[in-house]
């Protein structure tokens, strides 16, 4: 078993795992009763995308996308903080979610 062969298996399987993570988070994003769940899933998607980006840049062995990775991190953090800041300004309970909490 030559080492580069094992590496590519591990990396590709990691990529598949991350893609699965993204799909699962999407379920929560669409189903999510409260807005906060949706923001959480948005953050989750952000992070898994960063993971995917890292793996692709390793597979392509190009160092161009490292800045993009940093910007993705910034956007992930910034998006979440912006959404929570918005909710901090406007969120009132009565327009709360329709689903019951214990599903």
């Amino acid at each position: 078993m030559t080492s580069p062969y094992i590496c590519s298996i591990l990396l590709n399987s990691a990529a598949v795992l991350l893609l699965a993570a993204i799909l699962l988070t999407m379920v929560r994003l669409i189903k999510g009763p409260t807005v906060f769940d949706r923001i959480l899933s948005f953050d989750g998607i952000g992070v898994s995308m960063i993971g995917l980006l890292v793996i692709t840049s390793i597979l392509w062995n190009s160092s161009q996308f490292l800045d993009a990775i940093l910007v993705y991190c910034i956007f992930g953090f910034f998006g979440t903080v912006a959404f929570s800041y918005y909710l901090h300004l406007t969120y009132e309970l009565e327009d709360s979610e329709e689903g019951s909490i214990n599903d």
Binding site: V71, I74, F78, V81, A82, Y85
Partner: peptide, 12 residues
């Protein structure tokens, strides 16, 4: 834009 984002986060 990056610097503007940092200012906005600071503003929060």
């Amino acid at each position: 834009i990056i610097f503007a984002i940092s200012l906005v986060i600071l503003n929060m």
